[in-house]
Amino acid sequence: MKKIFAVLAISLLSACASDNAQQTSDVEDHSYNRGGEGEGMRSGAGSDGFGMNPLQDPNNILSRRSVYFDFDSYTVKGEYRDLVLAHASYLRDNLNAQVLLQGNTDERGSREYNLALGQRRANSVKDILLLSGARDQQVEAVSLGEEKPRALGNDESSWTENRRTDILYQGEY
């Protein structure tokens, strides 16, 4: 009952202040990313002309989109925690934003089995995002398996490059 009353009260009061409704959106976004830039974050990806989109700003951690894994490993390494947490925070503050996580593998052998291994790499990033406050509807984890290698070489550095999960925002894929 209390809640319902509160909601009613709020709607009444906000009706009084309708001419200021626009500005409230700025307030709404204030807690986003301790970095400060608060504009236009509701639209997910894409710049709104007001400075740089944090997702594309090379100085912002959010511009980093790849999480690399060790051989035969599917856990997110400590060095990528902050990166994943920053994206979680962004998703929390931008409920309209959605990400596609694409897992990849360098492994030889069965393509379908590798697809499942890539899925495991995407899932482990997804798990951290959800545990850090992103919503299930905002995150889709998929796998590209060994089908779309970024590096084509047959050496250790190429393989390392292909053991990864990419974070793509809506509109970027």
Partner: peptide, 13 residues
């Protein structure tokens, strides 16, 4: 939170 803030804002008016 935004609603609560909104509420505060309205009350201030």
């Amino acid at each position: 939170l935004p609603l609560l803030l909104l509420l505060g804002y309205g009350v201030a008016q």
